[in-house]
Amino acid sequence: MEADIAVNSDNKETWSGGGAKPFGASYGKMMMWFFILSDALTFSGFLAAYGLTRFKFIDSWPIADEVFTHVPFFHGNYPMYYVAFMTFVLIVSSVTMVLAVDAGHKMQQKKVALYMFVTIIFGLIFVGSQAWEWKTFIKGSYGAVKTSDNKILQFVKADAKGNFHQVSLASFVDGHRVDGREQHSKKNGLWFEGEKTISQYSVTQVQQAFKNDPSLQIRSEQINLDTKQKVILSRDKSEEQLEKASQVVEGANLHVNEYGNPIFADFFFFITGFHGFHVFSGIVLNIIIFFNVILGTYEKRGHYEMVEKVGLYWHFVDLVWVFVFTFFYLV
């Protein structure tokens, strides 16, 4: 056998390149880098697809800082503050990871454990925030109406200065749903079929309420490319468009999206979800390594290179987020 293969396979070290270190990088570290490279290309593919779709719908794409305006425990309009906080959390967790790797080089077991622990906590804060962000996005903020030709109509009112502000359905539609339509559940319908949550109001109810309040106008999905603002329809045009309403939309999911084009929501769920899954696996890896550190595995091994390798992965998660943050929330 030995004649056929370059490295002796009887040697237990074979899988790690027989201890060979091309470019001074160990097998494990080099492979982590190549994995990161391939994963970076995957994420670029997703973001490029997002870019293509956005260019395709450049005159009607949702404006991100009108979509992500919520901060937990605060009411009001705070575009981007919360994502900025999340970005900061991830950067700080990268720093604690660097400190863990650094302590590993100095063979300070307790310090490595401490910094790993802090990194895990920051990671959990980040995924928790991401979950909250999803929940808020799915729930929606104002509610809108979808027309039979698949356009989203949002409701706005002008303030004293003539600036338009979006208003929620609940602020101008009175009371509860009046058309007698009920949520289909196992109790009142076919036991083997369920139904997604139906909207709070019926289409006719919204149309009626709109007619009763002349101060309301409709904001279309269309963007005026000169001002980069959504086009506000005149009262007449608004009524005309609202006639075509076919569905009341509250929140966002993979089929409808009260903020505009549903594919925006699809990309949001897919890209931030894929990233969130990376953060989650990073946390799992960190926890495993954390316990190894506590158990003294790397003290016995004589080096803390495993901490360095999961550290690379963890920094990569941060690196990807920097791009997701820019292309989803800023640009």
């Binding site: 190549f34 990161i36 970076a40 593919g45 870019g51 260019f55």
Partner: peptide, 24 residues
Amino acid sequence: LVWTAVFLISYLLFIVLFEGGYLY
């Protein structure tokens, strides 16, 4: 690592974003 990523990503972005503009 860096050159591979930079080259492939630039190429992908160039071709895909132009296509997006064309679709529009």
